[in-house]
């Protein structure tokens, strides 16, 4: 009887833990919708921030800046990250590959503010200028571990036979690797790219002293550039109720973007690799 009671209590406690874990999520999502939705509108999404005291204003330059920084970060990070994943999948369990795999995992655990600090020392100080490019380098560092890992996992799901068939037909190693194996795993790699982008899109800390921020439109990579997360931060800690209101709207937009990228990531794997695995 006591054993049964202990069992029931334990089950109840564990179920309760799940419920407790979901409370913050519910609160967060509810408030984002309740406070963020009323702010959204065409002017909010496309406008420039207005000076304090003037009502209205938008996050258009932040959205554009985020897009610019992410595009530059992808140009820098995707080749290295995906390439590292290809290397890890090909090299398997060699000592060097094991070392690279471990470093990639550890790099993923480095606080993003530390990455921003390093890029500040590497680029911003010597150039005497905050820039979109510096922000992009920092975000590329954020993306690397996710990319390498997702690419390796996707490639490992490709059946060996496929690669061997290609080699047996006389195709060279790089052709088999790139045109047969990597192509088959394209869906999985795309998933990794989306996840890495989703993570980078929400990062604020590495941008604070690399891309800094900007009150105006900017498309030049060598200039300080606004970004959505930094705008949310600035608005949230400001003492002005109107800016705080806009912070909720901007946060909702950011969450929708990140959520969309995550959804695409799931979809990419399911449609392509799912079919491949079933075959």
């Amino acid at each position: 009887m006591r054993r049964r009671l202990a069992d029931r209590t334990f089950t109840l406690a564990c179920g309760l833990a799940v419920a407790v874990a979901l409370v913050p999520l519910a609160s967060l999502l509810w408030l984002l919708l309740a406070r963020g939705l009323p702010v959204l509108g065409w002017g909010f999404l496309t406008g420039l921030p207005k000076p304090v005291g003037e009502a209205g204003g938008g996050i258009g330059n932040g959205l554009l800046g985020s897009a610019l920084i992410l595009a530059l970060a992808s140009a820098l990070g995707l080749p290295v990250g995906i390439g590292a994943g290809l290397y890890l999948a090909e090299a398997g369990e060699r000592p060097l590959a094991k070392a690279v795999r471990f470093v990639a995992e550890v790099l993923g655990g480095v606080p993003s503010i530390v990455l921003g600090l390093a890029v500040y020392a590497l680029l911003v100080r010597p150039m005497h200028r905050f820039s979109a490019l510096a922000g992009a380098v920092a975000l590329a560092l954020v993306m690397l571990p996710t990319l390498a890992r997702a690419t390796e996992e996707a490639l490992r799901l490709v059946p060996r036979d496929l690669r061997e068939a290609s080699l047996a037909l006389g195709a060279s190693e790089w052709r088999s690797g790139l045109l047969v194996v990597a192509r088959t795993a394209a869906g999985g790699i795309a998933t990794g790219v989306c996840l890495a982008l989703a993570r980078a899109a929400g990062e604020t800390a590495p941008l604070l002293f690399t891309a800094l921020g900007n009150q105006f439109w900017n498309l030049r990579p060598d200039q300080p550039t606004a970004s959505l997360p930094v705008q949310i931060f600035t608005y949230a800690i400001s003492p002005y109720p109107d800016w705080q209101r806009q912070a909720w709207g901007a946060a909702l937009v950011l969450l929708l973007l990140v959520g969309l990228l995550n959804l695409i990531a799931r979809f990419a794997t399911r449609s392509r690799l799912g079919a491949g695995a079933a075959r």
Partner: peptide, 15 residues
């Protein structure tokens, strides 16, 4: 629960 992991840090800060 995995969605919680995807929410950016700055949004948690706002909350």
């Amino acid at each position: 629960i995995e969605l919680l992991a995807a929410i950016p840090s700055v949004v948690y800060g706002l909350w």
